[in-house]
Nucleic acid binder design. Structure first.
Lengths: 213, 213
DNA sequence: ATAAAATTGGACACTGTTGTCAAAATGACT
DNA sequence: AGTCATTTTGACAACAGTGTCCAATTTTAT
């Protein structure tokens, strides 16, 4: 659990950095598990092995704790997506196998990842009540990540490996196909084998539709 | 809002049937909006234009109200899916256009539908806390609906209109592709044009992958 | 060692929610 | 008009959660 402030520079900036991290980490778990309304400050305090008062000292009221949780997850998730997208095989030797590898990385880091799941859940559960949370997500998801995937596929098309007239559409369908074969449901976690099978099946269908004939 | 009991036979079976319906209808809205923990009996009573006591008289405590809500939504949703699946074009003249029409019906009746959205939301939000709710859904979704779609695609393959070695996989990918192009987010509602565009795009890609060459 | 800062535990007032109770009001049917 | 079931209303106790205050304690820096 990392925060934006640099702990080395000022170890006691607004209190003990470790406790602060413990609080946000615990708050994330509790908010994801119980939702904003269902989560109680006491539960967070217990989970963090910290007294309730410390939470109020460090972060303020429940809403501010929640905001901090969302900020920290969003930051990490976005960073991980960009990092993963950097490994896209723009000029592959073997399109299919390299796309499968990429799809597996994407699934592992950006779909099955604990942060990503937590973020999705918070947006689904609290997005209606906290519109600015949903707005922030839109800046990342449809605003930044999807075009980034589209740009990757466009490069693949330009280098002649696929035919994609509408890269944005291709990106949405690519991610949909990658995820179509993943186990569903609350608490469902995919094994490495399932991730690989889903990636293979998704990429095969994708290339049958978008590959050169 | 309909219930399983027949109102005509015994108009005052366990109290006023209309009030009972109004309560469940209102409870559905409130549970979907606020989640189980966030929903209050008072809010439901107000939404239903009914006194709080009437809710306790008719249905019992909060958990039983919730259970009744889930049951009524699940029943209606499943019926609508089966009804829609009955119109699958097993021996079409024009595969693409008839599949698009079918996809549009599926999206309208079973994806964008208010009941379906409510059910998905309840499962996502409360499925962890009420595992039996999730179990019930699994019987319908992966247990009944997905195989039903797979059976439709298998018939289409048998009649020579597509090539689908693995109909179950094809069914998951078909529904994923149909939904890939739909607007996302809390409160996002698709227009008729968006539904049509999504169906067209999804079916086109699906047929490029699964159609006869 | 000492001073400053942070943490703890407990108590507190306040609010909102649940579920129950009994008396009064409503409405339908004879 | 009278009877019956149902609904309404207002009150109630019990409980959980929030956010604050403060004194005692522990941790950290100098």
């Amino acid at each position: 659990m990392e925060l934006s402030h640099d702990p080395a520079r000022s170890p006691t900036l607004r209190g003990n950095y470790n406790k602060r991290c413990a609080i946000i980490s615990a708050a994330t778990a509790v908010f994801v598990r119980d939702g904003f309304t269902g989560a109680s400050i006491d539960a967070i305090a217990e989970e963090a092995n910290v007294s309730r008062q410390t939470i109020y000292n460090q972060l303020g009221d429940k809403e501010r704790v929640f905001a901090e949780v969302v900020r920290s997850i969003t930051e990490r998730s976005s960073a991980r997506i960009m990092e993963t997208l950097a490994s896209f095989p723009a000029e592959p030797e073997d399109v299919e196998s390299e796309l499968v590898d990429f799809a597996m990385r994407l699934t592992r880091n950006c779909v099955c990842d604990a942060d990503a799941r937590a973020l999705r859940r918070l947006i689904e559960n609290e997005g209606g009540r906290y519109p600015e949370l949903f707005e922030t997500w839109k800046d990342y998801g449809p605003g930044k990540n999807w075009p980034a995937v589209a740009a990757c596929l466009a490069r693949l098309a330009r280098s002649g490996h696929i035919e994609a007239d509408d890269p944005e559409l291709a990106a949405r369908q690519f991610t949909a196909l990658i995820g179509a074969d993943l186990p569903v449901g609350p608490g469902a976690s995919a094994t490495e084998d399932q991730i690989e099978a889903a990636a293979r099946n998704g990429v095969r269908t994708f290339l049958r539709a978008y590959g050169k004939r």
